[in-house]
Computed example of a mutant assay.
Amino acid sequence: MNAVGLPRKDEMPRKDERLAIPALGEYDNDLLTVDAWLNNRSKVVQAQSLLCVQLQERDKLIKERVEYLAKKRGITFDEMWEQILNGTAQKMTPGEEGLEYKSGDEG
């Protein structure tokens, strides 16, 4: 801390990685407002809850898609998952598509 009691620049917390979601349409915003009120939550908390539920419902589908992409690239599911998470996954070009993965391959 400096003399004023504020954290020094090198002690500042990391920048928040919050999602920026565009404004909802009028109807969806009204639904979210009512849903939040019914659940005794703020709109932000209710929207976060709804997004988490939707992602959990899609968990199996998301993992199946990652598995498909991994096979297509000739790598493991874990390697593909890590590449996506750390931002190093690359889209395949049209000429590369299908080089590793064949439709008859069994997983």
Rank of each mutant, 00 (worst) to 15 (best):
V34D: 08
N39Y: 04
A36N: 06
K72N: 11
E67S: 13
P7R: 15
D30S: 13
R8A: 08
V4K: 14
Y68S: 13
K9V: 00
L61G: 05
L38Q: 14
N39H: 12
I84M: 05
A47H: 05
G104M: 11
L69V: 02
Q56S: 07
E11Q: 14
K91E: 12
L19M: 09
L55N: 04
K102G: 05
Y27T: 15
D59W: 03
K72W: 07
G104V: 00
I21L: 13
L31D: 12
L85K: 14
K60I: 06
A36K: 05
P22T: 10
G25F: 01
T93P: 02
I84V: 04
N40W: 08
P94I: 03
K63H: 12
T88C: 03
K72L: 07
L6N: 12
A47S: 10
G5I: 00
D30H: 12
L32A: 04
L32G: 03
D30R: 13
E64L: 08
L85N: 14
L24G: 01
K71D: 00
Q48R: 10
G104C: 09
E106H: 04
E67C: 10
L99K: 15
G104L: 12
Q83S: 06
E67K: 14
R58D: 12
F77N: 02
A70S: 00
V4N: 14
L38N: 15
K43R: 14
R65T: 03
S103H: 06
L50V: 14
R65K: 11
E11G: 02
A36W: 03
Q56N: 09
C52P: 02
R58N: 14
M12H: 09
D30M: 11
L61Q: 07
